[in-house]
């Protein structure tokens, strides 16, 4: 299984990093780390260009992050019309990992503030689609 059911609209399927989806189905949002040089990657890379190793290991992104910035999108592009309004955000997590995802619909827009505590969790969507989102941490 690859990225065919990822997000609202997926544009490609195959990737060496497709294990990400398997973990996501199991309830985990994962990043990769190079066991040789220690560099970690999000979005996950299946290869390590820092030391040119082709072997990386997966680790779960746990713990709380902080909201770095966000925007409430009122106008979705083709394929996303029915999602709008949705809130895109960047969250900063431990170890210099930054993630872009949507803020959960259960966060009221009046409650959003810079620096607020977040967690990143898998999101099962209708019709077998899957994604991840930020919830209040």
């Amino acid at each position: 299984m690859g990225f065919e059911n990822f997000g609202t609209v997926s544009f490609t399927t195959e990737a060496k990093a497709a294990d990400f989806i398997t973990y996501l189905e199991q309830g985990k949002v994962m990043a990769t780390r190079c066991p040789k040089c220690g560099v970690s990657y999000f979005p996950p890379k299946a290869d390590c260009p820092s030391c040119l190793s082709g072997e990386v290991e997966w680790f779960e992104i746990k713990g709380k992050g902080k909201l770095a910035t966000y925007t409430i999108v009122n106008y979705g592009p083709s394929g996303f019309e029915n999602d709008a309004p949705y809130i895109l955000a960047l969250g900063e997590f431990e170890g210099g990992i930054q993630i872009m995802a949507r803020l959960s619909k259960d966060i009221a827009s009046s409650d959003i503030e810079a620096g607020m505590s977040l967690v990143v969790v898998p999101l099962k969507r209708p019709e077998g689609r899957i994604s991840y989102e930020f919830k209040k941490g």
Partner: peptide, 28 residues
Amino acid sequence: ERMGRGADIIWESPFGLTMPAGYAMYAR
């Protein structure tokens, strides 16, 4: 949608990232 695919189509376009949304996050 074309501009949205000017982002990373595996990891970020599927969230509905657009050019204005990207710059809006810088603005915020």
